[in-house]
Design a protein around this nucleic acid. Structure first.
Lengths: 134, 134
DNA sequence: CTGAATCCAAGCGGATACTG
DNA sequence: CAGTATCCGCTTGGATTCAG
């Protein structure tokens, strides 16, 4: 039977659009840089150059060890940063932005600039909105 | 007693950094525009001008009604878009970017441009990485 | 020092049903 | 038409413990 309810057709449409969502480069990128600690990691590596794992952990003390490692590994997998292991005792691991990662820095800076210049307007709008709807 | 274990001090440090994280304008903005449907909503409103709720729902068929409404309301609360109710039967609701929202469009475009130009390099890096670690 | 593995709570986000 | 309300599974992310 080709008979389907409106709900079924709508569900199917949603599925196919979900696929397109995951394929959309913009959404894929926003998923990455929107991750909780990515902005801070980029800030550290962009401003301070290569960093050891422990240095990053200190600089980004808000992140748990698990999240920091997970995030670093995902960024490495995407080719945005490099991970260099120096076999020694104890072991030494350095992270650095790749050229691809560096090319993303200006984009992040654009985001930062807009945020710093406009965050106050957002706060004002939020207070006004909250006041109106008591 | 001022005596605290290293673990306690570390936990306290993490708490205070968590607060700073939530205050950071960049992270606050990324939290917003990183939400699942924000990029598509902005794309629709930036390219097509004001849109009725139903038109947005059709254009962004991947989003459930609940998520679409939630996201629109949060963006409205932040002053990034406006919601205009026309009392009629049936009721008509239009959404549009505010000037503040429009000022964010170029930033989103920068993200989109980088994504489209570099997503392939990310895919390549990912395949290479996955291949190496079988 | 740099992680991996496990456990668990909180919340995001989808499905469904109902409403002015 | 444009939502609201409820239920619920799954993912996210922190705490803790163990390891090379």
């Amino acid at each position: 039977m080709t008979t389907r309810t409106a709900a079924q057709r709508h569900a199917e449409a949603r599925i196919s659009h979900q696929a397109r969502f995951s394929d959309c480069p913009t959404n894929r990128l926003l998923d990455r840089i929107g991750e909780k600690w990515v902005a801070l990691i980029f800030k550290e590596l962009a401003e301070g150059g290569p960093r050891r794992y422990g240095e990053l952990a200190d600089a980004i003390a808000g992140a748990s060890q698990k999240m920091l490692t997970q995030t670093l590994r995902r960024l490495e997998r995407d080719g945005l940063l490099s991970r260099t292991v120096t076999p020694a005792v104890p072991v030494r691991v350095d992270y650095a932005l790749t050229p691809l990662g560096q090319s993303l820095v200006p984009v992040l800076l654009a985001v930062t600039r807009w945020a710093e210049q406009n965050i106050e307007q957002i706060d004002v709008a939020r207070e006004a909105h909250d006041a109106q709807h008591h």
